[in-house]
Amino acid sequence: MNKRVILKQRPDGIPKKEDFEVRIDALQLPLKQGEILVKVEWISADPAQLVWISGVKSYMPPVRIGDTVRAFGVGLIVNSHAAGFKVGTYVSGLLGWQEYCKVHVSKVEKIPMNVNPTLFLGIFGMTGFTSYIAIKVLGKIKKKQVVVVSTAAGAVGSVAVQIAKAEGCKVIGITGTASKIQWLKDIGISDVINYKTENVASSLKTLCPEGIDLYLDNVGGEMLDAVLLNAKKGARMILCGAIQSYGQKKAQPLYLYPLVISKSLKMKGFIVTDYQNKFDEGFRYLESLYKQGNLKYKEDVVDGLENAHTALQKLARGQNDGKMLIKVLHEAPKL
């Protein structure tokens, strides 16, 4: 049997428990050629899921009502009809909120057995690749440049600030709680702005009076406006997320967009899966930083599929303390 969580209704604002439903169904066996059965162990909770379940058209189609909630996960192959994918191998992919996932091997990636599998949902997964693409590939940072990152203590943000620091940049992180400020200081980011208690535009002017070279935006709205005020001529704005608008009926407005023209700014939005040709070099880079002790991470874990919705709630409220994960607690399987 397979326990899974389906989308029962579209959330109105921050997702609630009532928006989801736990179901237990028979496993869809036997496997076809090229398919594997994965025992899902860990599931990633990401801001993108807030968009996927909202019904808003995006780079991926919305999760349909009645479907298993879409999510990246890692798990162990327990049955295989695919050459080269042995039982006992760990894989990652869009496995969803469920205990078991029947999937074609073209939709998953093998991951090493000697590494903590949750790292492939975090610093060695889409989280890490997003940061690498934003800062290195698109941001094209250079030593001593000023780099500002919003949601800097989050999964993507915390990797991004560490990449920029390793490249010799002056790094400014923006976050919203004392504990997150301390975490950033613990990983070597001394210049941190608390957007809940400070005026972001004024604090940026104090910390970088000559202006900002690169900004990684995960928020949008008024925070992006504050950065535009302090951007150097020709600065790069890499748009990764817009958490301030997720779950809202209207996106937060951007008032100072004329500065993009007058300052000759470059603004670039991106979806990480459009850069899969950069994943191998990104992994090598991130692995090197990790082995050197220059890439640290935190995980915030919710136990059980029944509580998976709380992971999205914490993300939406900015209450997560590190990479948000859901641990799948398996009952005795009935295959």
Score class of each variant (00 low, 15 high):
T197V: 02
G96F: 00
K185N: 15
A235I: 05
V200S: 07
A235N: 05
Q319W: 14
E331I: 03
F279H: 09
I271S: 04
P30H: 11
D191I: 02
G234R: 05
T197H: 05
M60P: 00
A83P: 05
K327C: 11
P253N: 09
K107C: 01
L184T: 03
G84H: 08
H309I: 09
M1S: 14
H330K: 11
Y195A: 06
A26F: 09
D321T: 11
E299S: 09
A308E: 08
K3A: 10
Q162A: 02
Y246S: 05
I261F: 15
E21P: 00
E18L: 01
G125T: 01
V148R: 06
N294T: 00
E41Q: 15
P253D: 06
Y59D: 10
K107N: 12
L315Y: 07
Q248F: 11
P11W: 12
G93L: 06
L138A: 07
S106F: 00
P117R: 14
L94I: 13
E41S: 12
T130C: 08
T177M: 09
G247M: 08
V103H: 07
L315G: 06
Y100E: 12
D303T: 00
T151I: 09
I172G: 03
L259W: 12
M1W: 00
G66R: 04
G96I: 03
N294C: 06
K233T: 12
V78C: 04
K165S: 05
D217F: 04
V147F: 15
V227G: 07
G241W: 08
S158A: 01
G73R: 10
G55P: 01
K233H: 11
L76Y: 01
E210P: 00
K250S: 13
R64H: 05
K16W: 05
C169A: 04
G125Y: 03
G96S: 07
I36N: 09
Q313R: 13
T130S: 13
A164S: 04
L207E: 08
A242D: 04
N218T: 05
A332N: 12
V22R: 00
S262G: 08
D186Y: 06
L254T: 13
P15G: 06
C208W: 07
I174T: 02
S190M: 12
L289W: 02
V74N: 00
S44F: 04
I65R: 09
M267R: 10
V328T: 10
S190Y: 07
A82N: 11
K266A: 06
G304R: 03
A178K: 15
V328N: 01
M267T: 14
F20N: 04
D213K: 00
W97M: 04
P15L: 13
F72S: 03
I174P: 01
K140D: 13
I77A: 09
N116K: 15
P333Y: 11
Y132C: 06
Q248L: 14
V149E: 03
V137R: 08
S264N: 15
L325T: 06
H309M: 11
G293A: 02
V159Q: 01
G247W: 12
